[in-house]
Amino acid sequence: MTEIILELKKLRKNFGGVVAVDHMDLTVESGSITSMIGPNGAGKTTIFNLITGFLKPSAGNILYRNTDISGMKPHVIARKAIARTFQNVQVFPQMTVLENVMVGRHIRSKSGFIISVLVPPFCRREDKKNRTDAEKWLDYVGLGHESDKTAGSLSLGNQRKLEIARALAMEPKIILLDEPASGLNARETVVMGRLIEKIRKMDITVVLVEHDMELVMDISDQIGVINFGRCIATGNPAEIQSNPEVIAAYLGE
């Protein structure tokens, strides 16, 4: 039996009277690609915000490798090797592409402020290592030739790749991708799909929120369908495509 890396148990989040996520149960197997689909406003991004600590759950638990991480601070959760990208890309526009990825190395670098001031040679050696690591990840996502540009000058598609490179530089065990294909053209979407499969091959678990059904059906092992904050169905792509409840939610029957 494969190991469960992430488990949502009866997760609930309400903003005042508005219930965004309710009784949400989902298990994610280690090394899989799990997609969450559902209409806009179904609560998918809220679930990501709960997992990464930007929101605190109103009730329920989030188990990551059998420890409860619900309610922890974002930077603490990030240090547990959970990485994430955003629906509207969040890069550091004024910094160079390379520096953006180096920031992702933050949790993997040992030298804090004191060491970087007092022990320059050690710090420089580590800086060099961070730099080559960052270059490696840029090559991996196909941005190696853009490293000296400022991140703000990249196209949207490349900013998404940059965000993924920064996330990968953290050497995550699990990566949450929030609509990585939105705003990309057909060709860029295919490239993105290949990149996601490449990430899974490195034994990094992928959780995906995506509207592009072709991409989702193509690469997912498991799909969870979210509607009105609840998970109404889970299964492999074939099961989901023939599930009457899912068809009803999507076609409004």
Binding site: P74, A78, A83, F86, Q90, F92, Q94, M95
Partner: peptide
């Protein structure tokens, strides 16, 4: 520059 993204990087 971006506090959320920085937190996410740990």
């Amino acid at each position: 520059i971006n506090r959320d993204a920085a937190c996410l990087a740990g």
